[in-house]
């Protein structure tokens, strides 16, 4: 009897809110898989360039248009020779019609582009930029969205103007405007901050400033509901200033929708950046992102389809895993679903 009571007390002691959330999150298979994939990609792009130290900008013009080493699987009976000494395989023809010269080398596992730049190194470097843009733009849109949402929800006077502003932003055709803004302000910012930082700042700013509206609406709705609750009334009645009510009582309670929009925000920011680069209006070729690599690869699509497949796969896997994480997080943070 005594031991049974202790057991109950033990289980109670170890259950915290975030523990519960974690238990629920772990039961979502897609979310866990997404977490693993996202972790691998994040690890790859942050530490990858230190492990695979080839310079992504080095032009090895003799090795231009090298194919990926995976083409060895197509060589049939020469497959072992191909993997052990890829240089010795000079010719093979997948279609048996055209005699194409395919260069293979272990120095370039994913091949090189038309100028002899290593595709693997470019992919890792491009992923860094894509991820950095995604996270920075997400942070910006999150800050703007949360501030607008909290202000509109908490202060009645600001509600009207801020929500009209949100509606106005929602009515703007975003993709055309993004294209126009980047086209028009690109050169000025490049002149101000240098070619790379300038375009980075511009794209992060532009994506962040055009994607905060959903967060603002969700946050406003939650704040409006919270404001009527007793604990806010209690806080107000003992004279807590508005700044403290927001930071101590409101912010912790709206954390879960913010976290969900944060994960989904990374996905949309990465897709938007890639779409801009794909239309030729994002980062320049010598500062590649996944979208830019995909765009550059489309010109050579018939010679080496692998050049478009790798960056495309990287974008898709990242976005897919982030979306799954967001899905799991939404379920885990919803108290009506959690614990069922």
């Amino acid at each position: 009897m005594n031991s049974a009571v202790e057991e109950i007390e033990d289980t109670r002691k170890f259950r915290s809110l975030w523990g519960d959330v974690w238990v629920q999150f772990r039961s979502h298979k897609g979310a866990m898989l997404g977490m693993v994939v996202f972790g691998i990609i994040l690890f790859g792009v942050t530490l990858g360039p230190y492990i695979w130290t080839t310079d992504p900008q080095y032009l090895d013009i003799r090795a231009k248009n090298t194919s990926t080493i995976l083409n060895c699987f197509l060589t049939g009976d020469q497959i072992f020779q191909c993997f052990s000494d890829p240089g010795s395989i000079k010719y093979f023809d997948p279609n048996a019609e055209t005699l194409t010269r395919v260069k293979l080398s272990w120095a370039y596992p994913l091949g090189t582009d038309q100028l002899g730049r290593d595709q693997l190194a470019q992919l890792l470097q491009g992923g860094r930029v894509s991820m950095a843009v995604g996270m920075a733009a997400m942070l910006l849109s999150l800050v703007v969205g949360t501030v607008a949402g909290v202000l509109a929800g908490y202060f009645r006077r600001l509600d009207g103007p801020l929500m009209r502003l949100t509606d106005l932003f929602l009515a703007l055709p975003l993709l055309p405007l993004l294209l126009v803004i980047i086209m028009l302000f690109r050169d000025t910012l490049r002149g101000l901050f240098g070619p790379e930082t300038g375009i980075f700042l511009l794209i992060v700013f532009v994506i962040g400033i055009t994607s905060w509206m959903q967060t603002a609406r969700i946050v406003r709705g939650d704040v409006l509901a919270l404001k009527e609750r007793e604990f806010i009334l209690a806080a107000n009645s003992i004279g807590t200033p508005a700044k403290r009510v927001i930071s101590r009582h409101i912010m912790p309670n709206i954390l879960s929708p913010i976290m969900v929009s944060a994960t989904l925000g990374i996905a949309t920011a990465i897709i938007t950046e890639s779409a801009l680069s794909f239309l030729g209006l994002g980062f320049p070729s010598d500062f590649p992102t996944w979208g830019r690599l995909l765009f550059d690869g489309t010109t050579y699509i018939s010679q080496s389809p692998a050049r478009v497949i790798w960056p495309g796969l990287a974008i898709s896997l990242t976005v897919l895993s982030v979306n799954f994480i967001g899905d799991g997080l939404r379920d885990a943070l919803d108290p009506r679903i959690r614990g069922r």
Binding site: P305, I309, G312, I315, V319, L320
Partner: peptide, 26 residues
Amino acid sequence: TFISMIGFSVPTFFTGVLLIVIFSVW
């Protein structure tokens, strides 16, 4: 559910290019 998740995660510029690789190149 899984396919629709893929459907709106994979950007159209990749599905389009992938279809071109499969149906026009290979």
